[in-house]
């Protein structure tokens, strides 16, 4: 079995994220990192490989992004992927969900995986949708927000929370599954794995390499356009107490609650 894991490079959690008012795209300067939600997808792939219920021949990390995104691939490889594929092309810049999902599906078609794993969301885009878009292009069954995967008789038995409680769904392979962050506790890469990551095979692909129709990607292929960026509705800032002397802090909380008649 071959597993492809979709990973994305995102601004580091410590970086204040903002929109660039001139391009109306995310300002991508500053420190970047592998999308933390994707580490759960890599870990899920590793656990399937190590679980023994099915033979996993290889785990391939796949990303679409600018040149700098190779670092996210190195990180993915240090966490267990065997090799990686980097789709990068100026024509892809500014792609929306519709265009991104199509482009990623084109790279994946060239790999023909038995299983595609994704994170529950990208930390910057927060779209929650790329998995299901990719699945439809690949004509594969799909499920998102999965928190348990068991491989049984060549099928996946998945659990997740949906609108009315926990659902258990059996999914035939090949399939596209996005995993929730409660599915596992990602391991830390070993020093050796970090050092070795750059030596693992990395394929760089252009849009033409994977047969992407240029009119369907980038800004011109996108089906949404940002008209304006506005501040959120104003809200009175709340009171903040830094806990230095806990007895004092607790007294302040109690008076605050009393003033609002919440201790009656």
């Amino acid at each position: 079995m071959k597993i492809c894991v979709l990973v994305k490079e995102v601004p580091d959690a410590a970086v204040e994220k903002r929109m660039d008012p001139s391009t109306k795209r995310l300002d991508r300067s500053g420190e970047k990192n592998l999308n933390p939600f994707d580490t759960h997808a890599i870990e899920a792939a590793m656990q399937i490989k190590e679980g023994g219920a099915v033979d996993v021949d290889e785990i391939v990390a796949v990303t679409m992004g600018p040149e700098s995104a190779v670092r996210a691939l190195h990180k993915a490889v240090s966490l267990g992927a065997d090799r990686s594929v980097h789709l990068t092309d100026p024509a892809l810049a500014g792609s929306d969900v519709c265009a991104t999902g199509y482009a990623l599906a084109q790279v994946l078609k060239a790999e023909s995986p038995d299983l595609v794993l994704l994170g529950q969301q990208s930390d910057d885009g927060e779209c929650y949708t790329v998995g299901a878009v990719v699945a439809d292009h690949l004509q594969m069954p799909s499920l998102t927000q999965v928190i348990k995967i068991d491989v049984q008789d060549g099928k996946l038995r998945c659990e997740r929370q949906a609108e009315y409680g926990y659902d258990t769904v059996e999914v035939e392979l090949p399939a596209v599954i996005s995993v929730g962050d409660a599915i596992n506790e990602p391991r830390y890469p070993s020093l050796k794995a970090i050092m070795g990551a750059k030596k693992k095979p990395l394929d760089t692909k252009s849009a033409a390499d994977v047969g992407i129709d240029p009119s369907r990607v980038g800004e011109q292929g996108s089906r949404t356009a940002v008209l304006a960026i506005n501040p959120p509705p104003a809200k009175e800032p709340g009171e903040i107490i830094e806990d230095e002397d806990t007895d004092e802090t607790v007294q302040k909380i109690v008076s605050w609650l009393e003033e609002r008649k919440l201790l009656a």
């Binding site: 994220k17 903002r18 929109m19 109306k24 927060e126 949404t224 356009a225 008209l227 959120p232 509705p233």
Partner: peptide, 14 residues
Amino acid sequence: PILQDSAVVDVDYV
């Protein structure tokens, strides 16, 4: 709302 509700974008469909 985007970026953890720190901004709100108006989006048009093409």
